[in-house]
């Protein structure tokens, strides 16, 4: 089914997406918001253009492919499915995400992967090819975030990565040892075992965008994990 986003507006567009179980191609997308919000199923939604904020919020199964950039709040509270962005994404990507995968070829903005969590067989995954802004993975409770920094040698994350982290893992591909990390975070160079744990995901990511897997793995990865000795909670006194 082909839909022309700019003729429909977000409400009519989403009505059609919700009603359909077949694969959908959305043409001439110019910032229409909420595409695929709360949609379940196992179909593929391809977007040619630039979808607006809250793409794939609460997404529960479908694969969303964006041929272009995406804006803010991609995959907010996403439960299942896959979002592939052949470009860069805005702020607050994957907020409170519980399951599924988000692959971004380019950069992502501030507050990527805040408060992601995992549950039973659900383990959310975000892989960013470029760099991300500050506040990456704050309050992280579960899941996996990988930032590859493929474009250049700059440190791939901004300030305050992992503040309040109490679960999950963040991997940064960089030659520079992460400095000034919040006290809730333990930094270590990824071990062979760590790398074995993420190699499938990196392979899937490389295949998706046609990157060379060897080249990706040819650089140091640092792992950020929660410091269990320094929990987020403060000490309380009953009163």
């Amino acid at each position: 089914m082909d839909l022309y986003a700019s003729q429909l507006g977000h409400k009519a567009l989403n009505d059609k997406i919700r009603e359909s179980n077949e694969d959908i191609v959305i043409e001439s997308c110019f910032g229409e918001r909420f595409i695929g919000s709360g949609v379940s199923g196992d179909n593929t939604i391809t977007i040619n253009g630039t979808p607006g904020n809250a793409l794939g919020a609460y997404l529960d199964g479908p694969t969303v492919i964006v041929n272009g950039n995406a804006q803010d709040s991609v995959g907010d509270t996403m439960n299942n499915g896959k979002i592939i962005i052949n470009g860069s994404a805005g702020d607050a990507l994957g907020y409170a995400m519980r399951g599924g995968k988000i692959f971004v070829k380019g950069d992502a903005g501030y507050r990527t992967g805040i408060h992601m969590k995992e549950y039973q067989d659900k383990r959310p995954v975000i892989v960013i090819g470029g760099r991300v802004g500050s506040f990456l993975g704050e309050y992280l409770a579960g899941g996996l975030i990988i930032v590859l920094g493929l474009e250049n040698d700059h440190f791939p994350a901004g300030y305050f990565a992992g503040t309040g982290m109490h679960g999950g893992e963040i991997f940064l591909r960089t030659d520079k040892h992460p400095e000034n990390m919040p006290e809730q975070v333990i930094v270590s160079e990824a071990t062979a075992e760590d790398m074995a744990g993420i190699s499938d995901i990196i392979g899937e990511y490389a295949d998706t965008f046609g990157f060379n897997m060897e080249e990706i793995l040819g650089k140091t990865f640092y792992k950020l994990a929660p410091n269990a000795k320094n929990p987020y909670r403060q000490l309380y006194t009953e009163n």
Binding site: R33, N53, A54, D72, S73, D76, D91, A92, Y95, R98, R111, I114, H115, K117, E118, Y119, Q120, K122, F135, E138, Y139, A141, G142, G164, H166, G167, P231, Y232, R233
Partner: peptide
């Protein structure tokens, strides 16, 4: 929908809402 024994933390703000426009979203 979080594992047993995991702290359940609701941050003070919604980190995706800094304005009425964000709330509208």
């Amino acid at each position: 929908m979080i594992p047993e024994g995991s702290d359940s933390i609701s941050p003070a703000p919604h980190h995706d809402i800094y304005s009425i426009e964000d709330l509208r979203q």
